[in-house]
């Protein structure tokens, strides 16, 4: 099975959810909070089960992998742009509020800088690729 076939298989998203859950569990366990880690792992496992079992829904199939095709790639691209724009608006708003409170604007300034630099770098890279 190629990487692309695996990503489009019904197993990718459930396994990815389990991987993220295990990562969260490990992080919480390192921070001496195993209980919260177990809850996070259970939530991610439940989400993975929804992706695995929710095969009748086009939305779940598209989010999970099996239903992906070029139309879904376009939907994914636009949804990512909406989510990214929303996060950047929230970061800018948070920065302004923090500065108005007399704080130094962290961590919003750093997050905004990462977002801005990443956007400009991506534009330059994608332009160079044609």
């Amino acid at each position: 099975m190629s990487t692309n076939e695996f990503v489009r298989s019904r197993w990718f998203m459930p396994l990815f959810c389990l991987f993220l859950g295990a990562l969260m569990f490990a992080a919480f366990a390192i921070g001496d909070n195993v209980g919260q880690g177990a809850i996070s792992l259970a939530i991610m496992a439940a989400l993975g089960a929804v992706f695995l079992l929710g095969r009748r829904s086009e939305t779940l199939r598209g989010l999970g992998g099996p239903g992906r095709d070029e139309r879904w790639a376009m939907i994914d691209l636009r949804a990512t742009a909406v989510a990214g724009t929303t996060v950047m608006i929230a970061v800018i708003a948070g920065f302004i509020v923090e500065v108005a409170r007399g704080e130094d604007g962290s961590p919003y300034a750093l997050l905004g800088a990462i977002g801005g630099v990443t956007y400009v770098a991506a534009v330059a890279w994608l332009r160079a690729r044609g």
Binding site: E58, R61, G67, D69, E70, R71, W72
Partner: peptide, 9 residues
């Protein structure tokens, strides 16, 4: 090699 929903759309 696309979904039925894509053909419908």
């Amino acid at each position: 090699d696309v979904s039925r929903q894509t053909i419908n759309s």
